[in-house]
Design a protein around this nucleic acid. Sequence first.
RNA 1: GCCGCCGUAGCUCAGUGGUAGAGCGCAUCCUUGGUAAGGCUGAGGUCGACAGUUCAAUCCUGUCCGGCGGCACCA
Length: 851
Amino acid sequence: MVRYNPKEAEPRWRKAWLDAGTFRTRSPAEAGAAPKAYVLEMFPYPSGRIHIGHVRNYAMGDLVARFRRAQGYNVLHPMGWDAFGMPAENAAMEKGVNPKAWTYDNIAAMREQLKMLGLSIDWSREFATCDRAYYGRQQQLFVELYRRGLAYRREATVNWDPVDATVLANEQVIDGRGWRSGALVEKKKLTQWFFRITQYADELADALKTLDRWPDKVRLMQENWIGRSKGLRMTFAATAPLPTGADGIEVYTTRPDTLFGASFIAVAPDHPLAERLAADDPAVADFLAECRRGGTSEAEIELAEKKGRDTGLRVQHPFDPARTLPVWIANFVLMEYGTGAIFGCPAHDQRDWDFATKYGLPILPVVLPPSAEADGYAPGAEPYVGPGRIFNSAFLDGLDVESAKAAAIAEIERQGRGQGATVYRLRDWGVSRQRYWGCPIPIVHCARCGITPETRLPVDLPDDVTFDTPGNPLDRHPTWKHTTCPACGGPATRETDTLDTFVDSSWYFARFTDPEAEAPLDKAAADYWMPVDQYIGGVEHAVLHLLYARFITKALRDEGRLDADEPFAGLFTQGMVTHETYRSTGPEPRWLSPAEIEPRDGGWVEIETGQPVEVGGVEKMSKTKKNTVAPEDIFATYGVDAARLFVLSDSPPDRDVPWTEAGVEGCWRFINRVWAEAEAAADAQGAGDPDQTDQLQRATQKLIKAVTEAFESFRFNAGIARFYSFLNDLKRLERADASERRAAVKALIVLINPITPHLAESAWARLGGAGLAADAAWPAFDAALAADPVLTLPVQINGKRRGEVQAPPGAAEAEVEAIALADEAVRRHLEGLTVRKVIVVKDRIVNIVAG
RNA sequence: GCCGCCGUAGCUCAGUGGUAGAGCGCAUCCUUGGUAAGGCUGAGGUCGACAGUUCAAUCCUGUCCGGCGGCACCA
């Protein structure tokens, strides 16, 4: 008996795979009739060190990739680096290092760590988004988007950090301050580049229902984010010309059926009409200022009181010449949505109800709840927003809500006052960043020709930049931005904005299909491999990255660069790795790392002080809470396979998994048990107990079925649970034939290879398997071999289990009934009772109803 | 407030319209030439609560309770 030694075995097998070229992607010609499988995990930011979350993400992807390989698919499983972004510039500012050198050093370090995981990756396809070869081609795509009107420039309000002199993304603003500088962030109007994602809003929303291998949750989040609503855009005619010169106020509504219930019009505080009125009236100006002061946090919005101010202006009701409605300015109306103006129907909208109640505006019910009577109907204590029949509404009376919407829209359109319209919450994607370490936007500004796309690509990022002063290094570089116009040859300046790094990650998956291609994409390669069959990553990208990538894929499709409609046919979002938190006790509690504590007297104490430690909640691993574990340490102690096994075994893959030392030790013991079984099977001799042999054969077939199904359906932990029980079977059936034992363990090895590939190779070799375990075919399930010769059927009397009987599979009902009624235990329970009915469920159970 | 997911052993989770399971932890014992180990045996569960459907419900239906996540003056 030789103990399994991962320290020796794991590097040896990684070298064997490399030497054999095991994970090289086959060309379509080599693959022939084999189906393709593109398996991809979200590529990492090269921070320089992998963390345990990476281990989980890539272990899952590797499981899928190795599983598909064994099933005979031609697998593409590449890796790259999401390498542009702020951390490199922050390192430059803080440590004076060059961002490019810093990034490539990190990539080199992290590549070595990732390679330790033994992933079945074709490393020949690796690239980084900061490679000139990649971002240059991205610039080419940008120019195409620009020429097709999908990239454009306009003035927009942005988060401006006055200390760092840069624009910040929304997520970089924390409590109103710049996350790095701590300066109060200002709203500033800047001319910015945008991608016209809203042009694809309908398709992005509609196509969600084709993504049947995406989590419902993510599809729902995207649907909410796009926020499509169908309604009516119409103008209420003013009774007198408005101060803005307009002759009416345009509103958007999704409830045109409630037009007869309208009792006021409200415009946003930053609506042009409100601003015009404020210019003439200090009281209005004061009111607008008051509205702006309101906090922006969710809690504040939640509690914010509805506030309004009557402008004194009035508009005409479109359907009732006798009625006019007052025009208010209201703080709850948003300028960014719809037209920045609404009509209020207090009877059927909570916000309008709150507002009308506060300011004494009329509440006119027009939708009658199903159970209510129109005569004498009075609104209750809150607005009615459910379905019903329209009443008090002239030509709409008697219609249901949906029919009334259509009828009202038709009438408004007939009158020429407006038309049916679709409105989205989704806004165009602002892609400008006033940063250095990103893809330069390939545009020049020419005094004569204006905005001109650069044809001399790539536009290289200069290496000689400085970070000693705030602001954009590209903008203050002495020579970089001065160039000539590609159109007229005259003097011109370069655009100094770079692209949001989400652009980089919006097409890298397509580039992987042929990373050497001269064009941004090789269409044949992209059409062979795309879409990605299985994409795996964190749910935190449910909206942004995944929505952007869908948009860019559709834009590339419309440019004829590939045929795929969607980038990711299958998506899986994995949970995080969490860990207990520990705090020291005493006057100044602080977070302690797992390495700083030890068990003592049934609790934990701080090693340095001997003071008791307070064990806190199980939370996402973070540096501040010091509840991280270092993958390298785990690898050194238990081997890579134990770590891979652990992150897949203890929780369903889409849920968080709490990291525990005991759990990983259990995995380590499991690995040793598998190895021991391989050794025992390899050394076993001769024929054994026929009954045990049969049982082992059936158990093996059941294992094959269960594990295959679990892997297909992303229930990896459930599959692993079957391995544990199977080891118990192997132990119990140790008198089975030697050849059957070897077959059983070989099946186990091939099934477990996607999880613990190094162990699988060692065990495979020990059992004399041909070639590499990584190349072994997935075992086929044989239902005939799995069938039990005799079944044990429980017998229930009045629904309670009272005994069990043996019967062959497929036994006739009458036969089983006779066996059951003859059973001694059953007869005992039936004493004094009359059998009224016997229910036999074939091969399952017998239930006797007696009384 | 709206939407979604989850409640099974101390912990993390499998599972099924019909006999409740695994790993870890715990207890007892064995081994001490696999030894910073290995193994045997065992205890431990009103399957979140209540109601309904059924011969039979942990599983299906409904209501409620608890936890997590997303969205939220979006007209």
